[in-house]
Design a protein around this nucleic acid. Structure first.
Lengths: 342, 342
DNA sequence: GCGGTTATTGACAGCGCTACCAAAACGTTG
DNA sequence: CAACGTTTTGGTAGCGCTGTCAATAACCGC
């Protein structure tokens, strides 16, 4: 008959209410919507809570209110530097809020993503941040049927589930190629690893630009499903030179590959940018420091994370951003590796 | 009088029990300790749960059982590559378990860490993973008073709160210096950024080795509280050369700095390893790919994360590891940047 | 001073699950 | 086959909080 278990010694809301001389429900309201209380009760509850060191029991709150204060975040990789900047932005934005983050790694698998999505939604999160726009049809249905704000990040697309923030990878790649063309390079190669959807779109942008300039040649494209690395950059570059020895520039789908190309050029005594131009993607910190300095396409990853988080919070709190699609753009940062001396 | 709120359409344990023809408590047991059920009921509950698509309500579980299945993880930075490997290990290990991870960033502040610790412990986590051994006295008291397993990671020390896994940063630094000494280098500089406790211990190891060889000279040490970066490596190296122009080797407290030094040497046409040796720390992937390849001290970050997580899980499940202090060691990977040709 | 409106406060019940104990079912043995 | 031990199952109550609605207090114009 009932529990004999020793009552935990934690302070409960009832205790706070008692000390403050109000009903538990009033005390409860203080923590959710202090403005609803009269000034007198507000300060009484506040000081009682502080005096007792009250910490709300989130499990009880979640059970009673049928929702949590958890924001689910789905990213495809922890290893990639790109996502660490993103995460920093997200965590910074949520830090001062009452929401906590539940982070999960999809490992670049949309099936894994769907599984994690189901898992998350069963716990009724207050919001969701998911990477990219290439969910499974199932995932989209799940996401649409849910009533919490959802922000897709990393790229923009015409048909967001709810809100979306990012930039056009195809346009960014195209801008990089346009820059190389303007510098007089003609045999521009493409190196890509992992070939996740965003890299594919960079490839598409590259192809569009090359075709528009009537310079497209499939031998100039070297890609691999392997995860990216600096070493891989060197390997892919070697492949590229084997297929197209007259290559005079390389656009790398990310900066790690670009660094690998730089090292491979040093090994082969290929002069940069005279014999070979290098352009990377993301503009990681080391690009500005390399010798020669490496051109890259700057993307606003920290801001993306931060803004995505802000959009979620605002929506939860009823101040939904008027613009559900946010394009953060990109900038081609021209450096020595792709700028020909006059 | 009571709630009129629409009953959520989620499947509850009671429904599963009903369909399986057992009492709710038996169904509950199935999810916590299936072995306690007879085979017959076990399969009945299992298929009923699957048929209804039952997902347990974690909030209710946490409230009723007075504990959660959340593992708190405190790391000092998201930006640092070192921690992304660690996190990957931790997430991999917890993936197949029922535990979920609550990640927080202390920003290298032990006061922030103490705050986050309080926050975590109020929610009764099932376990805790914290970085390093330099907590505030308050933090240590809090951690000792808690009854969940705690693993400290990244380094080892004599007096763990509970369990600890890592390696000796001082010994690792000392080994790096020993290697340089063996190669005949004598004016060995030290570059360090951020100067968090682990970098300080690397510095201590450097100092010990230099003093033992009667080669210590404070002008050879250049440090800064600034966060690390490749660019900073170049800057610190320039400072070092200004203070001690006869420097013939540099030990960098991390690989980013080492890469920056490499670039600075290229800029100044300093021959590596003839005029200058470079040794980094952590052995990030790019070190093997640089030109020349860069010597570094390999640390087992992924394994550290994975093992820490496993230690937590085992302890929760009553199979506490017999050895609470785990030394994962390190390896000096000798590469071109520090090996003199005969 | 009255009817009516709005700001505060409180009572009640229950969110979905599990701890505790007891009872039932099952085996085993002399 | 009774007596006993062991496994398996169920009943009860309650974890700490909040949604709903009702009640009360405060305010207002006339």
């Amino acid at each position: 008959m009932g529990r004999k278990r020793t009552r935990p010694d934690n302070i409960r809301l009832t205790e706070v209410a008692e000390l403050a001389g109000v009903s538990p429900i009033t005390a409860s309201r203080f923590f959710r919507n202090p403005e609803a209380l009269s000034i007198g009760k507000r300060v009484r509850v506040e000081s009682a809570a502080k005096e007792l060191g009250y910490v709300p029991n989130l499990a009880a709150r979640a059970l009673a209110s049928q929702r949590t204060e958890v924001i689910g975040v789905l990213i495809p990789s922890f290893t990639n530097n790109v996502f660490s900047d993103l995460l920093r932005g997200i965590y910074d934005a949520f830090e001062s809020s009452r929401y906590s983050i539940q982070l999960a790694n999809t490992r670049y698998s949309i099936l894994e993503e769907e599984k994690l999505l189901r898992l998350f939604l069963a716990q009724k999160p207050a919001g969701l941040i998911v990477t990219g726009i290439d969910q499974t049809p199932e995932s989209r249905i799940i996401m649409q049927s849910v009533d919490c704000p959802i922000v897709q990040i990393m790229e923009i697309g015409p048909d967001p589930v709810d809100m979306i923030i990012g930039f056009s990878h195809a346009d960014a790649a195209q801008a990089a190629i346009t820059h190389l063309l303007a510098q007089g390079y003609r045999r521009i190669g493409f190196l890509g690893a992992r070939m996740d959807p965003r890299v594919q779109r960079r490839l598409a942008g590259y192809q569009a630009a090359m075709k528009a300039a009537s310079l497209f040649d499939s031998r100039l494209m070297v890609t691999t499903p392997l995860p990216t690395s600096v070493t891989l950059g060197g390997t892919l570059f070697a492949d590229l030179l084997a297929k197209a020895p007259d290559t005079d520039a390389v656009f790398c789908a990310n900066d790690d590959l670009a660094l690998g190309v730089l090292f491979e050029c040093q090994r082969r005594h290929i002069a940069i940018p005279k014999q070979m131009a290098i352009v990377g993607f993301n503009d990681l910190e080391f690009m500005a420091s390399a010798v020669p300095t490496l051109t890259s396409v700057r993307t606003n990853r920290y801001e993306m994370g931060r803004n995505a988080a802000t959009m979620v919070i605002e929506t939860i709190e009823g101040r939904r951003p008027e613009q559900p699609i946010v394009d953060l753009g990109f900038t081609v940062i021209e450096r020595q590796s792709s700028v020909r001396e006059p």
